[in-house]
């Protein structure tokens, strides 16, 4: 059985075919293809929703064809179509939804709207084979600590303002770096490793706040006396924000007594963050899992797998005319049947 997953929440337009079957009463998935095209905003700018959606429109044909070809399937072989229905940027979400609805209506295939955040989490669980982890979802759109309880991913802690991905992107853009900036900042910080300068550190209970940290880091860059080098600021920005997240995660591990931890989302690709979280897991005698870098960013496989869980696990699909998008669809609004 095959599911076509379509992702278009922000800068990535992606399609993926995931094969699914049952093995020893357990639903298992295999990623057969993972095609994507990423919108790159002009250097120094963020994502303009309409420009990103225009990019997606242009990318649809190539990405869709590539996903089917590399999976060696045709639309006739596809059993179910899943698309990211939110949260995300309206014009971008509509492109993926139109592709999914058209294919579903034309080929009479079941259609499943999926939550983008659930996709990150569930794909990470499928790959890692973790059973009941505490999850850290960190990306441009999310910074949340999640624990599964009562058929939902409950938010144990989250950002009170901007996300970790936005912190790095907005800081990077102020330096004139191209978005996404996380990797460049990691490289800059590595050059000044060890030269830590104090920046605002805000943890409130299990929540974190990055906006004061961002303002302070940008001010340090533009400070005329140039007391700090770019490398020192980048290093300190990373250390401070990652320590904040690690503190919240460690407290959540200690409170929930979970013995597994999983990090997912685009920022999971950052090695320094992974290193700090690994140390926290060691202290809490907890297994550490990390979504592989190639599937940490937005992709179609996460949507296909979330769609499979929804369709096979709950038997849910929607009529094409009722296939919605929801720009601010919270992860804890979704009822999840665990595999």
């Amino acid at each position: 059985m095959f599911c076509l997953g379509i992702e278009s929440t922000a800068h990535t337009f992606a399609c993926s075919v995931v094969q699914y079957s049952f093995y020893q009463n357990r639903l298992i998935g295999k990623i057969l293809s993972d095609a994507r095209d990423i919108y790159v905003p002009p250097t120094g700018s963020g994502i303009h929703p309409r420009d990103a959606s225009r990019h997606h429109c242009k990318a649809v044909e190539t990405v869709f064809k590539h996903a089917l070809c590399s999976a060696k399937v045709s639309m006739r072989d596809i059993d179910v179509i899943a698309y990211s229905a939110g949260p995300g940027l309206g014009p971008c979400l509509r492109v993926g939804a139109v592709v999914a609805r058209t294919l579903s209506a034309f080929h009479s295939k079941p259609l499943v709207p999926t939550n983008h955040g659930i996709g990150h989490v569930e794909l990470g669980i499928m790959i890692s084979r973790a059973k009941d982890p505490l999850v850290l979802l960190v990306s441009g759109g999310h910074t949340a600590i999640l624990a599964f309880s009562g058929k939902r991913w409950r938010i144990f802690g989250e950002t009170l303002d901007i996300t970790l991905g936005q912190l790095f992107d907005q800081f990077g853009r102020s330096l004139g770096l191209p978005s996404p900036c996380g990797h460049e900042i990691e490289q800059l910080g590595r050059k000044a490793a060890g030269n830590y300068r104090l920046l605002p550190y805000v943890v409130k209970g299990n929540d974190v706040s990055f906006s004061g940290l961002l303002t302070s880091a940008i001010r340090s860059v533009h400070n005329k006396s140039k007391e700090l080098s770019l490398g020192e600021i980048s290093f300190s920005l990373q250390e401070t924000s990652f320590a904040m997240v690690t503190e919240a995660v460690e407290r959540a591990l200690s409170l929930t007594l979970k013995n597994e931890f999983l990090i997912v989302g685009g920022v999971a690709a950052n090695n320094r963050l992974a290193e700090m979280l690994k140390e926290a897991c060691k202290r809490q005698k907890c297994k550490f899992y990390r979504c592989p870098a190639e599937l940490a960013g937005d992709n179609g496989a996460q949507i296909a797998w979330a769609g499979i869980l929804e369709y096979v696990g709950k038997g849910r699909h929607v009529q094409v005319e009722k296939a919605f998008i929801n720009q601010s669809w919270r992860i804890n609004d979704v009822e999840v049947i665990r595999n």
Partner: peptide, 21 residues
């Protein structure tokens, strides 16, 4: 203008995916 632009864009991608499936 923006609405017509987006509608035609959506129709165009719909036509394309049907043709390429």
């Amino acid at each position: 203008i923006n609405t017509v632009d987006e509608i035609l864009e959506h129709i165009s991608i719909g036509v394309n995916v049907i043709a390429n499936a």
